[in-house]
Design a binder for these strands. Structure first.
Length: 222
DNA sequence: GCCCAGGGCACTG
DNA sequence: CAGTGCCATGGG
C-alpha cells in the first residue's frame, strides 16, 4: 500500500486547475448528435478506442471522417464494412487493428443502453479494451467514479512524488486519496495529461515548470 | 531522417 | 509476472 497523500494530491489538483483551467474532457460534438439523433456518449467510446497510443489531433481527423459519413455511432459502426471503416479511421493509426476493435465492441454492446449495464470486469473481457480504455469509458461515457491512469499519469506521479506502481496500484492511490467527485476525477486526469504534454514531457522543461519547487525529480531526489 | 503520441495484445522466459 | 515485438499515421 502506498503512503497517504491526500493533501498533496488535492493541492496538485488545485494548482493544475488554476494554471490550465477546466479541460472539459471528453469532447463530443453535441450538435452532430442532436442533428442525427445519436448519443454523444457513443462518440466518447469510439474516441477512447481510436486514441490508444495516438495523438488526439489524429483522432479528430478520424472522427471527422466518421461524421462526414454519418456513422459516428454504434449503429453506424455496425453498418459500415470493416474495410471502409478502416479507411475512414486511417489517420488515427493502427487502423486495421482499431477497426476490428470497434467492430467487436459494437457487437458486444449494441447501444449505449446495453453498455450502461456493464461492469469494469466485463469491459476488460472485450478484445481491444484494456485497463485505461475501460476506465475512460466508465468515467467519461458512463459517469462512474473510476480514475484513469495513463503513461502521463505514471510519469508525473513518479517525477513529482517518487511514486511508482502498476496500473491498479496507482489507480487505488488516486481513488483512496481523492473526494468521490466526478468533476475531480474527470478534470484531474485531463489536467495531468495537459501538464505532461506542455511541460513534463519525456524530456521535461523543468526550468519553466511552476511545480519545480515541489518536484522530487527537479530537486534530484530520485 | 528521427522521435513521439490520451494502449493493447500475443508471445516468450 | 516482466520483457519484447507488433500495430501505423501525422506533426514537430
Amino acid at each position: 500500500m502506498l503512503r497517504s497523500g491526500k493533501r498533496e494530491l488535492i493541492e496538485l489538483y488545485k494548482t493544475l486547475l488554476k494554471e490550465y483551467g477546466e479541460q472539459n474532457w471528453w469532447p463530443a460534438d453535441e450538435e452532430y448528435h442532436r442533428v442525427h439523433g445519436t448519443d454523444p456518449r457513443e462518440e466518447v467510446v469510439i474516441g477512447a478506442i481510436l486514441t490508444q497510443n495516438t495523438n488526439w489531433k489524429n483522432v479528430e481527423k478520424a472522427l471527422e471522417n466518421l461524421k462526414r459519413e454519418k456513422i459516428l455511432s454504434f449503429e453506424g459502426i455496425r453498418n459500415v464494412s470493416s474495410y471502409k471503416l478502416a479507411e475512414l479511421i486511417k489517420p488515427a493509426g493502427f487502423y486495421r487493428q482499431k477497426a476490428k476493435y470497434l467492430k467487436n465492441f459494437v457487437t458486444v454492446y449494441p447501444s449505449i443502453g446495453e453498455l450502461e449495464k456493464t461492469t469494469r470486469d466485463e469491459l476488460l473481457k472485450v478484445k481491444g479494451v484494456g485497463k485505461e480504455t475501460a476506465d475512460v469509458i466508465l468515467l467519461y461515457a458512463l459517469n462512474r467514479l473510476s480514475f484513469v491512469i495513463d503513461a502521463y499519469t505514471k510519469r508525473l506521479l513518479f517525477r513529482l512524488m517518487g511514486i511508482q506502481g502498476d496500473y491498479e496500484t496507482l489507480k487505488s492511490f488516486f481513488e483512496n486519496n481523492l473526494p468521490k467527485d466526478l468533476k475531480v476525477y474527470k478534470e484531474f486526469h485531463a489536467l495531468i495529461d495537459e501538464h505532461c504534454k506542455r511541460l513534463c514531457k519525456k524530456k521535461p522543461l523543468c526550468e519553466t515548470c511552476f511545480l519545480k519547487e515541489r518536484c522530487r525529480f527537479f530537486n534530484n531526489l530520485l
